[in-house]
Design a protein around this nucleic acid. Structure first.
Length: 323
DNA sequence: AAGGGTATCAACCGCAGAGGG
DNA sequence: GCCCTCTGCGGTTGATACCCT
């Protein structure tokens, strides 16, 4: 007895998502909340597999997702957590607010793995201790090291969630000379601190309206191109006055999205939970509580981590450093 | 300018676990 | 306990942009 396919393969669209599809999905989830993905394609009319809808939402449209360059701090955290946890990307992602497991996985596979290889071949001894030592050290030391590792992760999390800090995890802030983590310096308008899916879309659209980049590498190439097409289509219709059947609808959708985006920007967390109760509840019920941490109170776990981290600091335990 | 190689990342695939009936 | 559905996760692929010759 085989496992039934998550969707019938015929008539199911695959490949990159178009902005139209994104809008449909986002507005549906705004109304109904994420979950029950099985029914999403039928209810939205999207010719997408339910899995694809869920993936699109969790990896791209979900509120609070930060995209783009990883800061040095994030990079170090990933390296360390990968060393600690292995390829458990979801677990690693839970320590990195605003990053998706897919993003981290990609970043690891494309950047960090090579980087580490280089480092390890370059200075076998010193880096080996930091990155792979746990597999070579004796058990007693390993346990102590594990304690330290957990401590570091907690500290990093507490730093990331610290209310005094700006919303973005910004190793680049703490290290302004860092040119590798330069998304803020090269593209200030695309601070990549995404507060909502609508904001994601609105941001991309605005970015395109302002200055369609020559290169789309700083963002999603596919989606940005799709947006570009959409904007171009909108501009065409605006200039020519000839509106296609969908253009009105689309522009209305975008208007509402912008409104949503603006009200999100002007709302604090309390207002947010009141004025957008369906979405807010939805957001708070998301599987990763630390994603979008700026709009919701700390979870018990986070509180615990923060409390304990501060306790340890008082006890002088907080001297652990990354590398 | 053209063509090939490489890098990047969104999306897909398949498996596993959780939970309900 | 079994079956089924839904969801999450990690590995992999494929399309596209960029780089180099």
């Amino acid at each position: 007895m085989g496992r039934p396919p998550c969707c019938d393969k015929e008539g199911v669209k695959k490949g990159p998502w178009t902005p139209e599809e994104d809008i449909i999905l986002v507005s549906y989830i705004q109304d109904h909340g994420p979950g029950n993905w099985r029914t999403v394609p039928t209810k939205t009319g999207l010719s997408r597999c339910s899995k694809s809808c869920r993936l699109r939402w969790t990896n791209y449209l979900r509120p609070g997702i930060k995209r783009g360059n990883f800061t040095e701090q994030e990079e170090k955290m990933i390296i360390h957590l990968q060393d600690l946890l292995g390829n458990r990307w979801a677990a690693i992602a839970s320590y990195l607010p605003q990053r998706t497991d897919n993003d981290i996985k990609n970043y690891w596979n494309t950047h960090l793995r090579k980087k580490l290889k280089k480092l390890q071949t370059g200075c076998e001894g010193s880096m080996g201790d930091a990155f792979s030592g746990s597999r070579q050290i004796p058990r007693g030391q390993w346990e102590r090291r594990l304690q330290t590792d957990i401590q570091m992760a907690k500290r990093a999390l507490s730093e990331a969630l610290s209310p005094e800090k700006p919303y973005c995890l910004s190793g680049s802030n703490s290290n302004p000379s860092d040119s590798s983590s330069s998304f803020s310096s090269t593209k200030p308008s695309q601070s990549l601190c995404y507060a909502s899916s609508a904001e994601n879309i609105a941001r991309m659209l605005k970015g395109w309206m302002k200055s369609p980049p020559k290169s789309s590498r700083t963002n999603s190439s596919v989606t940005q191109n799709s947006f570009n097409n959409l904007v171009a289509a909108g501009a065409d219709t605006a200039s020519s006055g000839a509106k296609g059947p969908n253009s009105v609808e689309l522009s209305e959708n975008f208007e509402s999205l912008f409104e949503f985006h603006q009200s999100l920007e002007s709302s604090n967390s309390d207002q947010l939970s009141q004025s957008f109760s369906p979405e807010a509840t939805v957001l708070q019920e998301e599987r990763k509580p630390d994603i979008g941490a700026e709009i919701m109170p700390f979870s018990l776990l986070e509180k615990w981590l923060l409390d304990e981290a501060s306790c340890q600091e008082k006890l002088g335990y907080g001297d652990a450093k990354f590398f």
